[in-house]
Every structure is written in structure tokens, then in C-alpha cells.
Design a protein around this nucleic acid. Structure first.
Lengths: 210, 210
DNA sequence: AATAATTTGTTGCTTTTGCAACAGAAAAAA
DNA sequence: TTTTTTCTGTTGCAAAAGCAACAAATTATT
């Protein structure tokens, strides 16, 4: 996305701020943070990729959100309801910046550059988030697995500006992201292939339509 | 929600701003606005209720979002992709404020009170939006109609702080909101009733569990 | 390099959901 | 008030999705 430059500014300002910011490194499958009521943490993924995951009472795993470089997450962006364990897990080596959001409102006495950058960039940062959430909702409201898959492929395709791409997810994770049964999704992928809509080798997809 | 006071401030500042703000009234079923690429309009619903609606290629109607007093909407919160007609329709008499977002960034020369209030309140406004979107996603990721219904009821119940409430939707609209077939939803509602989980008279629901 | 763990691909069977159609109730319009 | 329109409630049947189980392939770990 074209906000990466702004984010760099933001991160720099945050790191040089008068407030306490923690930076930490994680390796694959480690839990980066879990969402706790009222804490209002704001995290920035400086490097790597991670998933926001929930397990429901039936043991179904859902990938609520997928984060890559410079994405933001934390309770700031999510009201935590007690009956859902939410946590962010690293998909590989990750570098993460932690910050408590509430401090942003309390103006520091020295009126540092940090607050200036923050108030300027935060809305844009969050709007970017909103856009992602809306795209997600658009996918989830599709009525069939096929429509979800095609919708997702179109999204990736228009993001990378190519009809041929590797999925940023494993197929198992993609099913959890689209909130469908994995084997049913595999079946549908095969049908899409048989019907000549896509080509598929491993998790490399080529769109043949339009 | 507890942001209504802040929104009032916001609206006041907006109306007295140095920029062009349009206010307009709509009656039931009128189209308040449709989402147009790159316009970046920001709207505030001053009174009434309205739905953000999409019709897909198969003619399925989906209620993407439901707005009530002081909710914000517009392209600012949505990247418009060409293959989806998105519009907001009034569910009854509505009063709406229109504003073009891009003007917010361009600081006016006179450094008016408006910009101050705006930069202060906007992040909070949008965060509120994010929270709603996340709740929506949580509902949509539920794997069955029953889970979606129960999830939705729990939400309403905890919002109104009562186990007995009238649905803010017609049942037809609720199905579109949960993105499921209406008759299948009706069937599931009946099963929930038969299983003793809920009581239902018209669109008044009472939760019997917990 | 060998072993263990995870992911992919497939399938038969069951359950859930969607579709279509219709009658009655309720709400809106004339 | 009467008529028209929309919404609710129901059902049989068809289609889609979920579940479970397993082998093959791929990827990590030792």
C-alpha cells in the first residue's frame, strides 16, 4: 500500500518519543500479544507477518485478520468481549513495536514532535484499517465458497497487478480466513480448475477469466 | 454509544466551518448517496436510520452496514471497487450532513476552531467505526446460521443490557445483514424456539439461556 | 540424512443451507 | 376503510457445505 512511507515517519516519531515504547522480536508460532480488556495497546509490525486468531467454543479456528509489514493491531482496534480468546501469532520471525494508546491523548508537557506526527498520521492509519475490514466483510458476505475464493483472488490480483500470484496464506489458513471448511474449499478449488476458471500448482494461482 | 456527545461537538464544528457542508433531508426508501470512486465523501446521519446496501451479480442483496443516529459513512470508509454498486438507503425520514473529506487535510488559512475539533475527534470517530466492523466480522465468521443468530442476539442483549428486546431490523433485513437465506433463517429461529433457547413473538426476542 | 510434523489433495456420507413457492398477517397507501 | 404492498412463517426438494478419515507430498526438526 502507498501508506508505507507515512508509517515509517510514524514509527520513527514513536521510537523517539517521550513515551515508553517497547520493541521485541518473535519467532515462528510465538504469541505476540493477546487481547486484554481495557488495556488499549497499539502494536506495529515492523517486520514479518502474523495472524489475529480466535478459537470459538467448538474449537473452530478463525483467522480474523492477517498482518504484514507496517500493519497496526492491538485492542485499540477491537473491543474485547470476554467470551473470545483473541491473540496474534507470528507466522515467522517478527519485529513488533508496542505502545499504550491512551497516552496519545494525554499531551506531554514538552509538546514534542511525536504528538504532532501522531495526531497527523493516526486518522490515516486507522482509515487504512477500515478499508481492510470492509474488504474482509465484502468477502465474508459472499454466499458460496466459490464466490469467496473468486472474490479473494480478485483482491490479490488487483493488489499485485497480475493474474498470476502465490497465495500469501497456506491453503489451510486461507480456509480459516474465508471461514469455510478446508476440504470443502479444496473441492471447490478443484471445480474452479476443472471449469477452466483458474490454473493452480501448489499455492500458485493463475486467473484465466476476464 | 458514549460518543454521542463528542459527535455533537463535531457536527457543530462542521456546520460552522469555513468549508462547504450540505445538509439534506430524505424520506423512506430514498437513496441518500451512492459510493463513487475517489470522491471521498464523509456523511453524518443526524437523524433516522439507513442501510449501506450492495446487490451482487446474482441479485443477492446484502446489507453491508446499518446506520443509526450519529453514525458516519461515505467513501472515506470504503474503497470502491467497480464491480459493486454500493448505496445508502433511508429506512425512514433521515437528516444527513455531507462533507468532502479531502478538505479536512488542507488547513484553512484562518486556522478555525473547526480544524481543531476535527483533528481531535476524527480518530475516535473512526475507531468507533472499526469496532463496529470488527463485531460484524465476528458475526460473519460464525459457521452456522444458528451461531450467527445467537451471536447477534448476544450483541443486542449486551448493548441494551436486557435479555428481552425488539430487533432493530425486520427479519428480512436481518437475513440480509447476516448474509443468509431468509427462509433458512426462519427455520433456524423456529428450531431455537423449539429447543427452548429463545422466546419469539413477531420480532421481539427473549433469551432464555445463561 | 532420517524422522517427525504439517499441509495438501481426495472422497463417501451426513447435515445444513438455499431455492421456490405459497398462504396468512401486518403495514402502508389510496 | 379498502386495497395494495411488504413481511412473516412454512414446507419439500435440490444443492452446497461440513465432517471424518486417510494417503501422498511437502516442510521442519533432530
Amino acid at each position: 500500500m502507498n501508506i508505507s512511507f507515512d508509517i515509517k515517519q510514524f514509527v520513527e516519531a514513536l521510537e523517539n518519543s517521550c513515551h515508553k515504547v517497547r520493541k521485541k522480536t518473535f519467532s515462528k508460532n510465538e504469541v505476540i500479544t493477546n487481547y486484554i480488556e481495557k488495556r488499549n495497546q497499539l502494536c506495529i509490525l515492523l517486520d514479518g507477518s502474523a495472524d489475529l486468531v480466535r478459537y470459538d467454543l467448538n474449537g473452530n479456528r478463525t483467522i480474523i485478520d492477517h498482518f504484514s509489514k507496517y500493519d497496526v493491531f492491538g485492542e485499540v482496534f477491537y473491543i474485547v468481549s470476554t467470551n473470545n480468546e483473541l491473540f496474534v501469532e507470528a507466522k515467522g520471525k517478527c519485529e513488533v513495536l508496542f505502545y499504550i494508546y491512551d497516552d496519545i491523548k494525554k499531551k506531554c508537557k514538552t509538546n514534542c514532535k511525536f504528538h504532532e506526527t501522531l495526531t497527523e498520521l493516526l486518522p490515516e492509519l486507522i482509515l487504512n484499517k477500515v478499508t481492510n475490514l470492509n474488504m474482509r466483510i465484502e468477502l465474508l458476505t459472499k454466499r458460496s465458497i466459490r464466490d469467496k475464493l473468486v472474490g479473494y483472488f480478485n483482491l490479490i490480483s488487483s493488489m499485485y497487478l497480475t493474474k498470476s500470484f502465490s497465495l500469501p496464506f497456506s491453503l489451510t489458513d486461507l480456509a480459516d480466513y474465508l471461514s469455510v471448511d478446508r476440504s470443502a474449499m479444496m473441492r471447490e478449488l478443484k471445480l474452479l480448475k476443472d471449469d477452466g476458471f483458474i490454473e493452480k500448482t501448489g499455492n500458485k494461482i493463475t486467473l484465466l477469466y476476464k
